[in-house]
Amino acid sequence: MLTIAGKTFRSRLFGGTGKFSSPQVMKAALLASGAEMVTVALRRVDLDDPGDDIMRVLDRERFFFLPNTAGARDAGEAVRLARLARASGGGNWVKLEVTPDPRTLLPDPVGTLKATGELVKEGFVVLPYINADPILALRLQEAGAAAVMPLGAPIGTNKGLVTAFQLGIIISQAQVPVVVDAGIGAPSHAARAMEMGADAVLVNTAIAVAGDPVRMAAAFAKAVQAGREAFEAGLGAEREEAEASSPVGGLDFLR
């Protein structure tokens, strides 16, 4: 079981709620994924289309909402969004995102560290989205982050674990859970992250934009479980030279 800030989760796959073709598809896919934790964003109500409340389809008893601060360009905006999320009845958890550059959506390490400190002081459970920077992960842990969420690749790119080497260092050093977030484009990417020892993965785009999001969600659920079981079972060491799987001796009769 995964525990973050004292709360346990059976599923190590976290879902996102963006980019689905309809609220019904989103709900079916999230149920198929087995995810308990799902991210949500906060936006101004569109007063010209006020009936568009897509979150009404999700049962808050079934899904634990993790509000994000997506769209915040600096620490101040992120703190403001986090406070709004808490006031919305979203609890005191927040996926902290500070992304100054809309082209890359890469997180600002300085702003993220600053906002983490402020939000922890205000009693938030903070899960910061970061580049796969091992030293930053340690700094955030010291600042009171409840988990760290390093990226595999930039948001929405489906490129997989481009940062695998650094992710390995983060996982080996972290005392808080490591949730690989962003860039995971295929179940094999998720399985690899879990085999490396990540505590969980967050997948949104790869499921939401799949040809069949419900089947893709189920595929991710299996991949995450398989990867975790492999990690717990202990992978064999890699070698530079071949080592026969069949007995080396007992072939005298051939020669």
Binding site: T17, F20, T39, V40, A41, R43, S88
Partner: peptide, 26 residues
């Protein structure tokens, strides 16, 4: 504002209000 405060706050001339809610996001 905390949601409990909404019913006790009267809007004044020139008040600036933002109404926000959860939407899909990753």
């Amino acid at each position: 504002l905390a949601r409990e405060e909404h019913e006790f706050i009267l809007l004044d001339e020139g008040a600036v209000l933002e109404l926000i809610r959860f939407v899909g996001g990753g």
